[in-house]
Design a protein around this nucleic acid. Structure first.
Lengths: 142, 142
DNA sequence: CGGTATCCTGAAAGATACTG
DNA sequence: CAGTATCTTTCAGGATACCG
């Protein structure tokens, strides 16, 4: 009765979810979000701590990243009216749950980067010119 | 003996790993990689299947994405010298392991998008003007 | 059918300077 | 100390046209 498989379609997730996934990927895909989040860990750090702990980040990008994280409820900002000012950041429960999800990816990266590098090297050696059309299937490196 | 904690530093991963993590994030952070990978699933699909199954993707971006995935050994490409030509793609074992890691993130997205949306709405209502410095800590929404 | 080759634009992010 | 305000560069990705 039901059509076998109308238009192939994604298999692990539904179309209506992909928007949510895109949102998350847009956030963690940027250059600093994951670094800020993992640097934060379960600690409470000040702005200047984050600056010092994240090599290469500019004031602008750290601020932009923190604001985005705060907006999404992933980090909490606590400002104290002192002189000189003090502002502390920490991951919220939501933020820590994202940390854990990202950790899976980090572990994948650490475990598999050498395999990826090997495949890259392989593709450079065989080159685009060699990459091949054959009459019979050739077993590709896997 | 050991210094207590020299410069705060990341807590969940080591600096030397962050480069690998960035590589992965750069790949899956782009617009189409995850979509291609999850669409592929454990099936074997042709180029035109992927085009049809991924709404909005252009030939150029599909090709670019597939080439990058192939280069990294995440998908295998199989071309048949027929007329008209036929090219099939499938995720490698490495690619499927990445699918599983990404799945964690997808689940996080599905489970928590409403919480994120709520926090966003909250921050819009209180506005930048209200977001506040106080003498005593105010409990931020968490 | 399964791609390449160009051109072009908007958004991300680096550099730099200034401020409550 | 903890930001904001601009300016500039870079480049991912879309549009379009063509090819084996």
């Amino acid at each position: 009765m039901a059509k076998e498989r109308a238009a192939v379609g994604p298999c692990t997730s539904w179309p209506e979810d992909s928007a949510f996934i895109r949102e998350v990927l847009d956030r963690i895909g940027d250059k600093w979000t994951v670094l800020v989040l993992t640097t934060l860990g379960d600690r409470t750090l000040r702005y200047s701590d984050l600056m010092a702990s994240i090599p290469g980040v500019s004031q602008r990008m750290l601020t932009v990243t923190l604001k985005a994280l705060e907006r999404d409820g992933l980090v909490a900002r606590q400002a104290y009216a002192e002189i000189p000012p003090r502002v502390e950041y920490r991951a919220t429960d939501l933020g820590r749950s994202l940390q854990r999800a990202v950790l899976q990816l980090s572990q994948w990266a650490v475990e598999n980067h050498s395999a990826v590098a090997a495949n890259r090297a392989l593709h450079e050696r065989v080159g685009v010119g060699r990459a091949g059309v054959k009459g019979a299937p050739e077993a590709l490196a896997e």
